[in-house]
Nucleic acid binder design. Structure first.
Length: 811
DNA sequence: TTTAGCATGCGAGAT
DNA sequence: GCATGCTAAA
């Protein structure tokens, strides 16, 4: 796996193509059951094609069938197809499905992979054209930030006011837009306090010195190679006769340029995507790429996949209603010949905790099977949130009621501290000049080698122009570092040398069966070597001695890491493909509810989906709108569309009237996207607070139920103010549209503005959740209140009533 | 050098 | 409310 030799890949591939040609005369099972649009997308092979594939319209099916078609008709050999995806997972799935369609493993498709994996392959071959050695290392985000931090400190910039993370994201943004330091437009000159462009150039220089690249460079270097070496580009253009791109709406400028270079000439490029599901603008994706496709590739053929096989009619209609509010879209109309099913359900709650409680109960009810519906296993249920911190309320609740759940997302396996540490050890053993790896682990576990010792080593290394490992050796030799530190450092270096010696044997044994047969028994396999490294370095012991609750899990992860090594021939190969171990799929026998972000849910589907937290500011996210205005709002709306279209049978949207944000209670307005739901496809549910059925929590009435019920004085007071807010008016209009009576009419309550209490410091007040308290501060509509029982809180005035008025209310 | 304790700031996260 | 990252003290 670690070898990317041209001829090898191309020859292996052509062996498969022979059998593919033999299939040409046979029936084509991959065409069976395709609808007309899909069939066209599969069979229109030549020229630019845009496959506009709505949610749940069988996109992957069409894409894989297209590859199968190319191969089995003999139109292209496996090595002549360039097929790019964004994630390894998608690449793997495509490989598997093509293999299944052809009835044989598609191992022979060397150019099916992620943008980055393919670029690594190309760049290893032609590294010297951009001044790199072909064994360059790929830095991850953490390494990048550490490197930039050094540059920022060296440039004498206040690292606190101008954090390295920020610089990293600015540079990342430039690279996404294919802007190299020389090409930075004047408009960017002011970035990062005016120091951005210079730091960018320095950073690139350092990378070159380190023989390293970051993720963005992978694309940019390859683009530069192609631009500067016309004949080489022409060669690849001839090789890659057919280009396929998945999730085209997620491509950034650099990826677009890359694709255009490779597709120029034959123009056999097929891009698959859905402008309505473009939700990665914040990391550089340009919806414009897909919107512009027909201009970019003249003569392009657009095929729309609009028949949906996933969701019920009501769910599709609701999703379509929301997305219709977007202006920048190509436009599609999803339809189904399936049932209308149940309407999308909408419910409001008093606060986030009640929302979580209610969802928990609903899931239990679904698992039992309610209202004549078939039971839905927790496996088929997902809760999709806008921001990951929303998950906490659900986790708390599920732990309380003993509901099994799994969280998707969170820190990626290879991003965990212990994994990164272990990998740094492996990296340093494989390549001693990996200075970033050295810095990471030289004092992990603690060896008494702190900042000062590291600085000494760095000075030594720099003044001699050698790596840190070599510098460390010199430091010991010259006695620049004394005492305990020197002793520990010596042990550390000896360890590195010893492990490296063991590895040389392991590589030889793996690459030459003869040696193994001749009984080179004292040589370790790379898996054993990894264990030895972790053991002898004291790294395993460090976690064994750690008594924090996370330690056992970390040891568990290390075991998994070692297990993952078995899949590779040697450590180098593993490090190269480390991203492959990202999704460590756990054994799940027990059915579990899935908890994840909306972003993580793209491409997935569930019989039942809960979409909590539909409140303005949270969803759509205030920040998104502040930063990119209408563009941001449209992306948020697409996120709503993605969320709804994940549901097959039941979709439940909810919002809370109050939510704790960064530890402060805030009143929330229902999301504007709720307004955009077409009323005829929505059913408004009655919150449990109305009948107080959530045992003992009568005080947790939701905003909706407040409006509906309205017998208590303090609610009346709260309402008068709320009625004046635009959000509340919107909610009421919705309820009108959804067939609810206006509460004031239905209950004969008049809105009495006089009833709104205006509080001043010293007033005694009452709050539904926190009980009695004394007003301490007043700032606009936010009051600081010292509650008798619940402590100090900041509360919006409308949720408070004077203690007198509340006196009669039984709580 | 290590650590405990306070200040700070906060969105989604592939490669 | 929490994690992160710095300063102060051991």
């Amino acid at each position: 796996m670690s070898s990317y030799d041209d001829s090898e890949a191309f020859e292996a591939a052509s062996a498969l193509s022979l059998s593919a040609r033999a299939m040409a005369s046979r029936p084509r099972p991959y065409l069976d059951g395709l609808n007309p649009a899909q069939a066209e997308a599969v069979q229109r092979l030549d020229g630019p094609v845009l496959m506009l594939a709505g949610a749940g319209t069988g996109k992957t099916r069409a894409l894989t069938a297209r590859i199968a078609h190319l191969l089995s008709t003999g139109t292209a050999r496996p090595n002549e197809i360039l097929a790019v995806t964004f994630t390894n997972k998608a690449a793997r799935e495509m490989k598997n499905r093509v293999g299944a369609l052809l009835g044989q493993p598609a191992e022979g498709m060397p150019w099916l992979g992620t943008f980055h994996a393919i670029c690594v392959k190309l760049l290893r071959r032609h590294a010297e054209l951009v001044g790199l050695k072909s064994n360059f290392t790929i830095l991850d985000t953490d390494d990048q930030v550490r490197l930039m931090k050094q540059l920022i400190v060296a440039a004498d910039i206040d690292e606190k006011r101008w954090p390295a993370r920020q610089l990293a994201s600015i540079i990342d943004g430039w690279k996404n837009r294919a802007l190299t330091p020389e090409k930075l437009p004047a408009a960017e000159a002011g970035a990062f306090n005016g120091r951005g462009p210079a730091l960018y150039a320095e950073y690139q220089q350092r990378l070159k010195e380190l023989n390293a690249v970051d993720f963005g460079d992978l694309l940019l270097h390859v683009i530069r190679i192609f631009q500067e070496n016309g004949d080489l580009l022409a060669q690849y253009q001839r090789w890659f006769r057919y280009v396929l791109v998945d999730e085209y709406q997620d491509t950034n400028v650099a990826q677009y340029l890359w694709l255009r270079l490779l597709a120029q000439g034959h123009n056999n490029i097929c891009c698959v995507g859905d402008d309505d599901q473009s939700i990665y603008g914040w990391r550089g994706a340009e919806v414009g790429n897909i919107l512009r496709f027909e201009k970019d590739f003249p003569g392009a053929h657009v095929v729309r996949l609009e028949q949906n096989y996933r969701s019920t009619g009501h769910i599709l209609a609701a999703a379509s209603g929301v997305i219709a509010a977007n202006r920048d879209r190509l436009g599609k109309t999803l339809w189904t010949d399936g049932e209308d099913g149940e309407k999308v359900r909408l419910i409001g709650h008093w606060d986030g905790e009640e929302e979580a409680r209610w969802v928990g109960e609903e899931i239990e009810a679904m698992a039992r099977g309610t209202r004549g519906m078939d039971p839905i296993s927790p496996d088929g249920i997902a809760i999709l949130v806008r921001a990951s911190h929303q998950m906490r309320a659900f986790e708390d609740r599920f732990l309380t009621i003993g509901m099994p759940y799994r969280v998707i997302g969170g820190p990626r396996f290879y991003e965990r501290m212990e994994i990164r540490d272990a990998m740094a050890y492996f990296r340093l053993v494989v390549s001693p000049e990996d200075d970033l790896a050295f810095e990471r682990i030289v004092n992990t576990p603690k060896r008494g080698l702190g900042d000062k010792a590291v600085q000494t080593i760095q000075r030594m290394a720099r003044s001699n122009g050698v790596s840190l490992v070599e510098g460390a050796r010199l430091v010991i030799e010259t006695g620049a570092l004394g005492g305990k530190g020197a002793k520990e450092l010596r042990i550390f270096l000896e360890g590195l040398a010893r492990w490296r010696g063991m590895m040389a044997g392991a590589v030889a044994a793996a690459s030459d069966d003869l040696i193994e047969d001749l009984g080179a028994g004292d040589k370790l396999s790379h898996v054993e070597l990894a264990e030895v490294i972790l053991d002898e370095s004291g790294y395993t012991a460090m976690w064994q001695n750690d008594k924090t609750p996370e330690a056992p899990g970390r040891l568990e992860n290390l075991k998994e890491l070692v297990k993952a090594l078995e899949e590779f021939e040697n450590l180098q190969g593993f490090l190269e493909h480390v991203s492959l171990i990202m999704d460590n799929e756990q054994d799940d026998q027990e059915p579990k509810v899935t908890l994840m972000t909306l972003h993580a849910a793209k491409g997935l589907e569930f019989p039942a989906v809960f979409l909590p937290g539909w409140e303005d500011g949270l969803f759509p996210s205030q920040r998104s709108m502040d930063e990119t205005g209408m563009k941001g709002l449209e992306e948020e709306r697409r996120l709503a569309y993605v969320g709804i279209t994940r549901a097959e049978k039941v979709c439940t949207i909810s919002f809370a009237g109050n939510r704790r944000v960064y530890g402060q209670w805030q009143s929330q307005m229902p999301s504007r996207f709720i307004d955009e739901l077409p009323g005829e496809h929505v059913e408004v549910l009655t919150p449990p607070g109305l009948y107080g059925h959530t045992g003992g929590m009568a005080a947790t009435a939701s905003p909706v139920s407040q409006v509906m019920r309205g017998s208590d004085l303090h609610e009346k007071a709260a309402r008068a103010d709320v009625y004046n807010s635009p959000g509340w008016k919107r909610l009421q209009e919705n309820q009108g549209r959804f067939g609810l009576r206006q509460p004031s009419e239905s209950r004969g309550i008049t809105i009495d503005a006089e009833a709104v209490s205006v509080f001043s410091p010293g007033d005694r007040v009452f709050h539904q959740k926190f009980g009695y308290g004394t007003v301490m501060t007043v700032e606009g509509d936010k009051l600081g209140v010292a509650f008798d029982k619940a402590g100090d809180k900041h509360i919006v005035g409308r949720f408070l009533v004077s203690a007198d008025a509340a006196g009669d209310v039984p709580f």
